[in-house]
Design a protein around this nucleic acid. Structure first.
Lengths: 130, 130
DNA sequence: TCCTCGGTACGACGAGTATCGAACAATAAC
DNA sequence: GTTATTGTTCGATACTCGTCGTACCGAGGA
């Protein structure tokens, strides 16, 4: 796999070689070159996911439960899965928590200005979450 | 309605007052303030629609049939409807033709940089249509 | 008038999606 | 070991979407 860090921390990435592990269907696009624009736009076209992404926009790592989203936790987990599979977010497992972060750098490298424009648009269109 | 031009040309806009006319369900968001970010991102998240938008990016007016899209004409019409209802495109009827144009200015006013970033991302990710 | 042409409407089909509750798994705390 | 916490998975439901063929409509041209 791409990288593992010490202790109980594990970075889940697409180029993992552990076929059969539970992480297999949790893949994230391996390299920035594989990020698909339609897939990313679709991932960002849902209000709940936009809200999630907005709360990750400061670069912080957030757990599923620490987010302010008006859906059941299973639904939240689903949305994170969509974001991960689109390559918008990556997940790091640490103990019993899963820390999610925006893949800002990778997205910026592949699609310069895109995420920033979407986030700016979101902040300007939803004053309650600005 | 917002505006009509002379001759047989008719601009289809949302603030039309013709309840019951055939144009009623072909509405385009009335003002730039009503454009919805999730709706726009959804409209742009389909490969065919991205291709359409890309071909309108030079500011030209194009008819449905003059576009290079690999779908049936009814499907193309459907995609234009989605784009219109999201406010991404507006349509002008002239004779037996419907001319579509990108609402670049309105989008730029409401969500600065968004359309440009998407178009740039598209061109860079799909060399065959660049 | 009849026919063609550009486009839309409609119905159908298969696929995908957003949502939830409940069950499950893994870790941490007791 | 038992319990609590955190998040995923599964099944179910209702809805949406992309696609097509066909039928239809309005405008022009024969």
């Amino acid at each position: 796999m791409t990288s593992t860090v010490g202790l109980s921390s594990l970075l889940i990435e697409a180029d993992t070689t552990e076929e059969g592990s539970w992480a297999v269907d949790r893949l994230v696009p391996a390299s920035v070159g594989l990020l698909s624009l339609p897939t990313i736009l679709h991932a960002l076209s849902d209000p709940v996911r936009l809200r999630i992404v907005s709360q990750l926009a400061d670069g912080s790592e957030r757990t599923c439960g620490s987010l302010d989203v008006p859906v059941a936790k299973s639904t939240c987990s689903h949305h994170f899965r969509v974001l991960r599979e689109a390559g918008v977010v990556s997940q790091r497992v640490d103990g019993k928590c899963r820390f999610n972060r925006l893949r800002s750098d990778e997205l910026e490298q592949r699609f310069p200005g895109l995420l920033a424009a979407v986030l700016r648009a979101y902040e300007s269109s939803d004053p309650s979450r600005a």
